[in-house]
Design a protein around this nucleic acid. Structure first.
Lengths: 238, 238
DNA sequence: CCTAGTTGCGTACGACGTACCCAGTTGTCT
DNA sequence: AGACAACTGGGTACGTCGTACGCAACTAGG
């Protein structure tokens, strides 16, 4: 029994010692190759064999650099977070700052759609995550109690992640069915009509008939909803 | 080329026609077996072979009932949603109704932790999802424009899912490292102190020093945050 | 120079989802 | 009643996956 498994993060394992032949690759190279494949063909396509083939080597060679595929994915996440374009400190306009965070998150997720499918939220306090956290909380530091800041940011991030997840799934479905949105509309019309005709789903009917949001572009939808969420945050501001 | 793939949802494929021998199982039975395994050992343990073995049959027999494993997962999601204990219509108290949805979602997700790890949000319009949708929108139907209802519910659900995802990951990490929360606290204290002593993370410092939320029980944290989110929704009510 | 440590990488194992096949069962039609 | 079409359970097989293991080649520290 004793201590149990000492699960050390990939970050605590040094990249190399100085004894044998010089390594032909690096973690960064492997991570970037993996991201390239995952961006193009999905996370499941970024298999050890495929990554190795892209680098011109054998699958098992990668294990000299990375303990497991899961650890490699952790490296990929951190590498992607690096792309968040956030200033060093809050600008004084909390609404603009939170908008910046939201749109950056969306941009990075859409560029690396595999981020939305990770089985774990990966909330580890790496340096990048901490920098983002400082910026976000600094922006919201307008007299709101600290506990409320925590929940308001969970609310904001929850909204952003949920909507972007939906966007990504929609795109994926369009791609792999080879349909255009119009064709999809036509194709699903009979099922929708059946639901409407049953008369048992009045609210669903109002969404289909009256809502204008679903007919906007993805950007407009996101922006509109984001503004509503920020309105909510503004409403509870002291 | 012609039409391309006709990807119809699992819901539009009838369970059986009336010609051959009577099927020995049913979609519901298979779905329940799959959920049982996924609850106990994780979604990846619910393989076609394992499910079939649990039912006392061969892996390929399952494909008589379900076109693919992905479709089976879709059935599992909808089946889990069945556990949501929601009345037939809104009660008139929107705040109580939305609380009911939130706490039910949390309960179901914690009971079926594999829900949080699905690669796709699975927003397909299964019968149970529709029932829930009707209840939620019916509850919020207090004069708010339909487009705002859409975003407010995205916000609420986004908050709930994000927080519960965090809870689930936390539990999983505690389990597989075999640590208690106290041990984990002690173990991570040096790293936290290092961050605080660096002086570069003032907001993080305030969270550690001043926030009371992280010291509450998971239920209390959830409840407190949920009330704040509902305050936000109340604030934009006409 | 020796040798310990590290490299790239081929082979192999036990999983996975599922395409394909075939024998057996049963509702429907002649 | 007999024929047959549509279904059933389920075995075998293929191509994938992550990765344990082993081995020859290489290079730094003594």
């Amino acid at each position: 029994m004793a201590g149990g498994e000492q699960r050390v993060s990939i970050w605590s394992i040094p990249e190399r010692q100085g004894r044998g032949p010089r390594p032909a690759y690096s973690r960064a190279q492997i991570t970037e190759a993996a991201i390239r494949i995952a961006d193009a063909d999905g996370l499941e396509a970024a298999s050890m064999r495929r990554i190795a083939a892209d680098l011109g080597t054998g699958a098992m060679s990668l294990y000299r650099y990375v303990p497991s595929r899961d650890d490699l994915i952790e490296l990929m996440v951190d590498h992607a977070l690096l792309e968040m374009d956030i200033p060093d400190g809050p600008t004084g306009d909390w609404r603009a700052d939170l908008t910046l965070i939201a749109e950056n998150t969306r941009a990075v997720w859409l560029r690396h759609t595999w981020l939305s499918g990770l089985d774990r939220p990966r909330a580890t306090l790496g340096p990048n995550r901490l920098r983002l956290l400082e910026f976000a909380f600094g922006a919201l530091d307008t007299g709101v109690p600290i506990d409320d800041m925590l929940t308001l940011l969970d609310m904001l991030n929850g909204y952003v992640e949920r909507v972007v997840r939906g966007e990504i799934e929609w795109r994926r479905e369009m791609r792999q069915s080879g349909m255009t949105p119009e064709r999809w509309m036509i194709h699903s019309a009979p099922y929708v009509r059946e639901l409407l005709d049953s008369g048992r789903y009045p609210m669903f009917e109002r969404i289909v008939m009256d809502a204008r949001l679903p007919h906007m572009s993805a950007e407009e939808q996101f922006r509109y909803g984001l503004d509503r969420v920020l309105d909510c945050i503004a409403a509870v501001q002291p």
